[in-house]
């Protein structure tokens, strides 16, 4: 399910079946040109990953609106508090499983004590989204993530 009117109509009627939330974490920063380029590309990758995962598992996974945050050297307390607040909100809906999708390994420490599972994908620098090698790589990673989500359902 996506955060779109047509999907929401279906979601509210079948809430008991959709127990998994997928939250893409997307950083941005305008302070350094190179970083800006990298982050924008990563944002596109995350969008692609999230959409493909949702496509196959539409009936059980809710793809939430992207979580945008300002990229800093260290994740601030305010930021981790904000994310935790969001996770708690989703948990109480209730979404039983919460997955965070990110390229930013700094979340690892911060989310340890949160009630969500972090899916960290090694960052992709450069590469062309339209190249078939990139697409194959992305596709195989997507399949891995899908099986990770499916495994956690059957635990």
């Amino acid at each position: 399910m996506k955060y779109k009117n047509i999907d929401i109509n279906q979601y509210v009627k079948a809430k008991e079946y959709i127990d998994t939330a997928l939250i893409p974490l997307i950083p941005y920063s305008f302070s350094n040109d190179q970083e800006l380029e990298d982050l924008a590309l990563q944002g596109e990758y995350i969008y692609l990953f999230a959409n493909q995962i949702e496509k196959e598992l539409k009936g059980r996974v809710f793809l939430t609106p992207e979580y945008y945050y300002l990229k800093t050297d260290k994740i601030t307390e305010t930021e981790s508090f904000r994310l935790e607040h969001l996770i708690n909100h989703m948990k109480s809906q209730p979404f039983k499983y919460i997955f965070l999708l990110t390229f930013d390994n700094k979340w690892r420490k911060v989310t340890k004590d949160m009630d969500a599972e972090l899916i960290w994908i090694p960052a992709m620098k450069g590469g062309d989204l339209n190249q078939s090698e990139t697409q194959q790589l992305v596709q195989s990673q997507i399949e891995e993530i899908q099986s990770l989500i499916k495994d956690s359902w059957s635990e």
Binding site: Q10, Y17, E56, L57, K58, G59
Partner: peptide, 8 residues
């Protein structure tokens, strides 16, 4: 497409 809620 699953006729339940649209998974594959």
């Amino acid at each position: 497409v699953c006729t339940h809620l649209g998974c594959t």
